[in-house]
Amino acid sequence: MTTVLPDLALPVIAAPMAGGPGTPAFVVAAGRAGGMGFLAGGYQPPTAFAEEIATVTAAGVPFGVNLFAPNTVPVDAAAYRDYAALLATEAARFGVGLPPDPVEDDDAWRDKLEVLRQWPVPLVSFTFGLPPAADLALLRATGAALAQTVTSVTEARAAAEAGLDVLVVQAAAAGGHSGTFTPDLPVPVVPLPALVAEIRAAVPLPVIAAGGVGTAADVAAALGAGATLVAVGTVLLRAAEAGTSATHRAALADPARTTTVVTRAFTGRPARGLRNDFTDRYSAVAPAGYPALHTLTRPIRRAAAAAGDPERVHLWSGTGFRHATDDPVGTILARLAAGA
């Protein structure tokens, strides 16, 4: 095991899942099982982020945190207004209002860096793009190892040139947002083992493999291709300790749900989830624009989740969703590691 990554009993770890599933209890459970988990800093207010870090630190388990690196996708104002008008009927269904103007922000990036200065974490990973060099230096000064989500050899080389320590190689089969640096371009559909092997041949950095992993055979294939660790997310969404909404849990177990799609209809960035009415109606007409579309659709998604309406909420899911079970996190990670 490389010294950059913790020496773990299991080669399978819990991926960061922003927006609810990745609770402190979830991360602690992964650590106590012999793996580790990532707290998701994305969408978190800085105070809540600090509290979660404090909670997991107190548990004494290995863990990391993930941040959304600033990489805004500006939205065309007219396209935003047109899309908001289309969504008005969805908002009216739940009696919620929608932001009339685009909201462009950096997810409190600077405040979260300050949290990590005050609460140092052993491993910090980034998604959506490379952080500025000065910010990488700031985090390195805390003693953290730095990991970058990449989806191609080009991105992996850029990460290595920027001095990152670890690559999180994410295949297109992954659930939730793609970590691509260029969300306006399609992410090539390459099986995870092939992508790991390709990047390992090009860039001499340790790899955490992720994307579409649902079985022990999937884990063994990624490790065999050269990964040091394998991160899983979707397969843990129904786990007892996950903060996944009841609506999302039910959809993952629904035998009528058979397909995942990549859509920007919910957030303005490409993300993979279970197909539903919202993706069918709006994927072809949604403009690019992150985080503006995330903020626009959030009232609808929150209301739909609370109402038990799976047709108007983002049901983030990778292609291995059929393997998600409601077992404890430790049981699932051990099962996945059985063939390693």
Rank of each mutant, 00 (worst) to 15 (best):
D7I: 11
A14E: 07
A15I: 04
P21L: 02
T23I: 10
T23Y: 07
T23S: 13
G31P: 06
G31D: 10
G41I: 02
P46R: 11
A50D: 04
E51R: 13
E52G: 08
E52K: 11
A58W: 12
A59Y: 13
A59D: 09
V61K: 03
F63Y: 07
N66I: 06
F68W: 13
V73S: 04
V75D: 01
A77S: 14
A78P: 03
Y80E: 02
Y83W: 02
A84P: 03
A84G: 10
L86E: 12
T89N: 11
E90R: 12
A92I: 09
A92S: 12
G95R: 13
P99K: 00
V103E: 11
R110F: 05
D111A: 15
K112S: 01
L113V: 08
L113K: 11
V115P: 00
Q118G: 15
V121Q: 04
V124D: 04
G129K: 12
L130E: 01
P131N: 11
P132L: 14
A133Q: 15
A134C: 11
A137Y: 10
T142H: 12
L146W: 05
Q148G: 07
T151S: 12
T151I: 06
T154E: 15
A156M: 05
L164H: 11
V169I: 14
P186T: 13
V189H: 15
L192Y: 09
L192Q: 06
L195M: 14
A197M: 02
P206K: 06
I208G: 07
A210Q: 05
G211E: 04
G212Q: 08
A216K: 10
A216L: 13
D218I: 02
V219P: 05
L223V: 04
G226C: 09
G226W: 11
G226R: 07
A231T: 04
V235G: 01
V235S: 02
L236P: 03
E241M: 14
A242E: 01
T247F: 09
A256H: 13
T259A: 14
V262K: 10
V262F: 11
V262R: 11
R264S: 05
A265M: 07
R275I: 10
F278Q: 04
F278V: 06
F278P: 00
Y282G: 05
P287I: 06
A288K: 04
P291F: 10
L296F: 04
L296E: 05
I300H: 00
I300R: 02
P310M: 11
R312Y: 14
R312S: 02
V313Q: 07
T319S: 15
T319E: 07
F321E: 03
H323S: 13
A324M: 00
D326R: 09
D327Q: 15
G330P: 07
I332Q: 06
R335M: 04
A340T: 03
